[in-house]
């Protein structure tokens, strides 16, 4: 199959970017979107031109590196799918596809389709951890965790931090990411000790990074490749509210 790509090209964070059109010729429906870009890049390199810069790592939907807003939807709009697992069978021969980077003030474009998502790392550093003091190895079963709690914590922990929630949100809000990270640890007994501080500090860092606010449109959960529920944002709101009312 043949595709026409309209790709955002930008030399560096300060340069003005713009769209350029490329033809992806002779690609197959079994290829992933990134493999198709690889084919286009090989041709560009062979022709002595700059390849399209994009992020990718594991290419099996678990690392959170790949991004790309494809025809207006982060990760291309297939439910529970990252760009690396998006196959060309979802497109039709001769289709024109617009490819853009994540757009948010907190995610500046580094080059072409690559954005700097360090803001997420700084939010994690602000509280997305459990402080473990050294000592003897605790017994594996010493802390009972109910199955339902473990399952819910796992649902939140499934977040791979790709940033699609920010990219799709009309407000460029990072609430779903932060909510998943806050909830994951706040639900578990190991994380309970730092529950209040975690919620306050991670939200504070999120605000500081310049993400937008939540208006509960639900776009984030619709594109989340790990299908994180909007209800985790309610949980974060609750945890943050309780911590605030305690005057911490």
């Amino acid at each position: 199959m043949n595709l026409t790509l309209k790709v955002w090209r930008q030399k560096n964070p300060r340069a003005a970017g713009g769209f350029e059109t490329y033809e992806a010729k002779g690609v197959t429906p079994e290829m992933s979107f990134l493999e198709m870009l690889d084919v286009v890049n090989e041709e560009l390199i062979a022709g002595g031109r700059d390849p399209i810069a994009f992020d990718s790592d594991c290419r099996e939907g678990i690392c959170g590196m790949c991004s790309l807003v494809i025809n207006g939807i982060p990760h291309g709009g297939q439910p529970g799918t990252t760009t690396c697992e998006l196959h060309l069978r979802h497109f039709h021969d001769g289709q024109t596809i617009t490819v853009e980077p994540w757009r948010a003030k907190a995610f500046p474009v580094v080059r072409d389709l690559i954005t700097n998502r360090s803001a997420f790392d700084r939010i994690i550093q602000a509280g997305g951890f459990v402080s473990v003091n050294t000592g003897g190895t605790p017994d594996g079963n010493a802390i009972p965790v109910p199955k339902t709690t473990a399952d819910r914590a796992m649902d939140a922990a499934a977040c791979i931090g790709c940033g699609a929630c920010v990219a799709v949100c009309k407000n460029a809000s990072a609430m779903l990411f932060v909510a998943a990270k806050v909830s994951h640890l706040n639900l578990l007994p190991q994380g309970k000790a730092e529950k209040d501080r975690r919620a306050l500090n991670m939200v504070k860092q999120m605000d500081h990074e310049g993400f937008g606010n939540c208006t509960v449109t639900g776009s984030c959960e619709a594109v989340c490749p790990k299908e994180i529920s909007l209800s985790f944002i309610a949980k974060m709101n609750r945890d943050y509210g309780v911590a605030t009312l305690k005057g911490q």
């Binding site: 207006g72 709009g77 757009r103 003030k105 407000n171 460029a172 993400f211 449109t217 619709a222």
Partner: peptide, 15 residues
């Protein structure tokens, strides 16, 4: 302010 540069194509899925 959180999105100074918008998208050329944007679909508000799920909202």
């Amino acid at each position: 302010a959180a999105r100074p540069e918008g998208y050329a194509a944007y679909e508000p899925v799920g909202s």
